[in-house]
């Protein structure tokens, strides 16, 4: 059996690190393939002339080759890299698929122009946006985060307190419930025209709309969470000497938290929609405004670049919410892993 090893001494101690012909097609094979795909992508950028004029083709090619080198190094030393090595090994098939996708994208746009050109820019055009238009893009990102965070926190807080109040007190429920039924189902965007001239600034109007979009699902789900708490929990707490404040804070709210997080998740989704629309229509900052502005200049690469950033931000926000939930609700079994 012909065996060659990365390191002769290590191979003797740890036989599983030895690279044999058979496991080239197994755990190492996929990593190797990923590295080759990225190398091909890099070489196609460097040595295959573009049909148009893009200044970042060379840098993109070098970047791709660096990625290929990292994958190659990571694949063959995964056993020594601990968690990072395992993570790389697990994601190797995705690295192949993604590398193939960008290569295809590159070939279909920059090399053959199969896709009509101003509308479908090649990867190097998007890279160019990130390098050359970074300050404006970052300003937009911060503006969006600021607006979203402010509105979401206000909406979630008000929604949570309202939900707990109407779930707990029938008197408050009597007054708030009809208002909630009348206003809640209305899409927050329907308020846009009114909000923009009744509020002192477009920023405060947008904050209000985002808070509204967040608040409704949070209120309804907190309310249903509090209302569905088993009365047996209250009986137990009362016989142990609990006062009403204890029943609300230590029984009703913790028991309702799984529902509250569903509401927070739904509110996050609908508030993203409001954020983008508000930025496109009224606010003169943020990623929605950037998209609108890019469209006005027919800067399609900028639009794709902004969309990618927006997607990462939204996904990141949801990841953050789910991490918080997992930490707070460790007692729950079988929650969805995001």
């Amino acid at each position: 059996m012909s065996t060659y090893s990365v390191s002769d001494t290590a191979a003797a101690a740890a036989p599983r690190t030895a690279v044999t012909f058979s496991n080239l097609s197994g755990s190492y094979g996929v990593g190797l393939a990923a590295s080759l795909v990225w190398l091909a992508f890099g070489l196609s950028c460097l040595y295959w002339p573009d049909v148009g004029d893009w200044s970042r083709t060379g840098s993109l090619g070098i970047g791709a080759i660096v990625i290929a080198a990292f994958i190659l190094f990571g694949t063959f030393s995964a056993d020594y890299l601990g968690g990072a090595g395992q993570a790389l090994r697990k994601r190797a098939p995705w690295l192949v698929a993604f590398g193939a996708f960008v290569t295809l994208w590159e070939v279909a746009t920059a090399k053959f122009a199969w896709l009509p050109l101003p509308f479908f820019p090649p990867p190097q055009a998007i890279l160019e946006v990130y390098t050359d238009d970074l300050p404006k893009l970052l300003d937009s990102v911060f503006a969006s985060i600021k607006l979203q965070l402010g509105g979401y926190i206000i909406g979630a807080t008000v929604g949570f307190i309202t939900g707990v109040s109407i779930g707990w007190s029938q008197k408050i429920g009597y007054w708030v419930h009809p208002v909630l039924r009348f206003i809640g189902p209305l899409p927050a965007t329907a308020w846009l025209p009114i909000a923009f001239f009744t509020f002192p600034s477009s920023w405060s109007a947008s904050t209000f709309l985002i808070a509204l979009a967040t608040g409704f699902p949070v209120t309804v789900l907190t309310w249903s969470g509090v209302a569905s708490v088993s009365s047996a929990y209250y009986d137990v707490a009362r016989t142990l000497g609990a006062r009403p404040s204890f029943l609300v804070l230590k029984v009703a709210i913790p028991a309702a938290l799984p529902h509250v997080f569903v509401g927070l998740f739904m509110g996050l989704g609908s508030s993203f929609a409001v954020l983008v629309v508000a930025e496109m229509i009224g606010v003169k900052a943020g990623l929605g405004w950037y998209l609108q502005w890019a469209q006005g200049w027919a800067a399609y690469a900028n639009m794709y670049a902004a969309l990618i950033v927006m997607s990462l931000l939204c996904s990141g926000a949801i990841t953050l919410l789910f991490r918080t939930r997992d930490r707070l609700l460790v007692w729950q079994k079988g929650v969805v892993k995001w």
Binding site: A232, A237, T239, L240, G241, A242, K250, L329
Partner: peptide
Amino acid sequence: PHPSRVVVFQDPTLFPWRTVWDNVALGLEA
């Protein structure tokens, strides 16, 4: 209700969000 008369129900009705220790501590905490 008063903690000098405590009930143990047919269902344990432990609070699922509290550990064993925190469940037992409930009365003293309340």
